[in-house]
């Protein structure tokens, strides 16, 4: 059996890659995709720790999984707003203009 620490370490790697994506990519949608990657890394860590706590006999193991469920809906809400902003910008401009605006320098 793979120890939960390995999963957490993997999630750390994925999370860091996502963070680098946020900092280096320039188009809004790519930044947003990187954020989704970070969220998923966090979910992996949560599930791994849920397993850990269940395995140590603590009663709260399952609540980690439940938190993932809630974070999924948070992500969905964010996606709704984020894509809404992008589309709103798109609607107000000619389609060729979007790239210029969607490029956000951080």
């Amino acid at each position: 059996m793979v120890p939960t620490e390995a999963y957490v370490a993997l999630s750390g790697v994925l999370f860091s890659i996502g963070a680098v994506g946020v900092l280096t990519r320039r188009s809004a949608i790519m930044i947003f995709l990187s954020v989704e990657l970070m969220l998923n890394a966090a979910n992996l860590a949560l599930v791994a720790y849920a397993y850990h706590w269940a395995g140590t006999g603590a009663l709260t193991g399952i609540s980690g999984q439940t938190a993932v469920f809630i974070i999924l809906s948070v992500a969905a809400a964010e996606v709704a707003i984020g894509l809404g902003i992008l589309v709103a910008i798109f609607r107000n401009r000619a389609s060729t203009d979007v790239n210029a605006l969607a490029e956000v320098r951080l």
């Binding site: 370490a9 999630s11 750390g12 860091s16 890659i17 397993y51 850990h52 006999g57 999984q65």
Partner: peptide, 25 residues
């Protein structure tokens, strides 16, 4: 990434018991 890997792997706690985890989850 290095920090998080070290943080995760340096966790001194015992490796959980798979049977227990399976039963609880």
């Amino acid at each position: 990434a290095a920090g998080l890997i070290v943080g995760a792997l340096a966790d001194p706690r015992q490796i959980p018991d798979p049977a227990l985890a399976r039963a609880a989850l």
